[in-house]
């Protein structure tokens, strides 16, 4: 989604000179198109993420639309309180861009895993959170939300090749998307893991189980009504996220199910165990945490048979 992000930002920046791009000294072989086209609106803030968010806050108050970019953990967690007290408290249109969803930085290890950014930032009600599932949805989401009056956090995958079949780039704030219909079980997911969940649905189909897939692409406004309506026709739901479970997608789905009194059983898949010092490629990390297609299929069978 990195290329989609930069290409879309270039497209918007050509039309709106309020847009500036700040980076915490990251984005090699990604930022260049923007930097070359808008050199006066590109700023490397250095390896100083707290200051970068502070800068963005001061610039937004003056009328700019600053996009502040770094790897998700450095963009969202290191300056968390700056985001809270800056753009969120002032309701200023800062856009924080966190790159590397879940385990995308596989071999880089736990310091680089974006497995808490959504959970943590969902604690800030004044912050719109956008979690595209693939490049086409990322481009549409960035276009649709660029003019939101308050702050936005984008959790982006760095892999440009991901495509979720049936999603076709659709995005709407406060809504879910349903790239695959089914009647036997509901799979609810978000972000770049959606492609893996779609693959699990395909595998389940070959085994005779038709799984519907819902992609949650944004919070604040939460797509509560939409998700409730979707889940109302299912007895079994599996949520899948490359995030810790506290406050993330599983917690959101559980809240919707409980508060709406839906008659379905939820199994929430995600990161349940603390970091143990190990690292590995993304797919291996997914297997370790049971959120790969095999793990999803196995959990669906267990849930339904119980």
């Amino acid at each position: 989604m990195r290329k989609a992000f930069i290409a879309t930002l270039c497209e918007l920046a050509a039309l709106d000179d309020r847009i500036v791009l700040l980076t915490g000294d990251l984005g090699h072989l990604a930022m260049e198109p923007f930097r070359e086209r808008f050199p006066n609106r590109f700023l490397n803030a250095g390896v100083a993420e707290q200051n970068m968010i502070g800068l963005a806050t001061g610039m937004a108050e003056a009328g700019f639309l600053p996009y502040a970019y770094s790897i998700a953990t450095f963009a969202a967690l290191r300056p968390f309180e700056f985001i809270r007290n800056g753009p969120v408290l002032h309701q200023l249109p800062v856009r924080v861009v966190g790159m590397g969803m879940g385990f995308e930085y596989g071999h880089s290890g736990p310091t680089h895993y974006g497995v808490e950014d959504i959970s943590v930032l969902r604690a800030l009600p004044g912050l719109t959170i956008v979690i595209p599932a693939d490049s086409d949805q990322a481009a549409n989401a960035i276009r649709d939300t660029y003019n939101v009056s308050g702050p936005v956090y984008y959790s982006l995958g760095k892999d440009d090749r991901i495509t979720v079949p049936g999603l076709n780039g659709r995005f709407q704030l406060g809504k879910i998307q349903i790239p695959r219909k089914g009647v036997d079980v509901a799979l609810v997911t978000m972000g770049s893991l959606s492609q893996e969940v779609a693959a699990a649905a395909q595998e389940l189909s070959s085994q005779g189980l038709e799984a519907a897939v819902a992609v949650v692409s944004n919070f604040h406004p939460d797509p509560e009504d939409d998700l409730a309506e979707f889940l109302s026709s299912f007895r079994h739901v599996v949520s899948v996220e490359a995030q810790t479970l506290s406050g993330g997608l599983g917690a959101f789905a559980a809240g919707v199910i409980a508060s709406r009194g839906l008659r379905c059983k939820l199994r929430a898949l995600g990161v349940r165990t603390p970091p143990d010092g190990t690292s590995g490629p993304q797919e291996e990390r997914w297997r370790k945490h049971g959120i790969d297609r095999g793990g999803i299929v196995r959990n669906v069978h267990e849930l339904i048979s119980n």
């Binding site: 700023l43 707290q50 200051n51 968010i53 502070g54 800068l55 963005a56 806050t57 001061g58 610039m59 937004a60 108050e61 003056a62 009328g63 700019f64 600053p66 309180e81 700056f82 007290n85 800056g86």
Partner: peptide
């Protein structure tokens, strides 16, 4: 520790 970061952004914006 937050005011000066914001101030630097405000000065740059000006």
């Amino acid at each position: 520790g937050q005011g000066l970061c914001i101030g630097a952004g405000a000065a740059l914006a000006a």
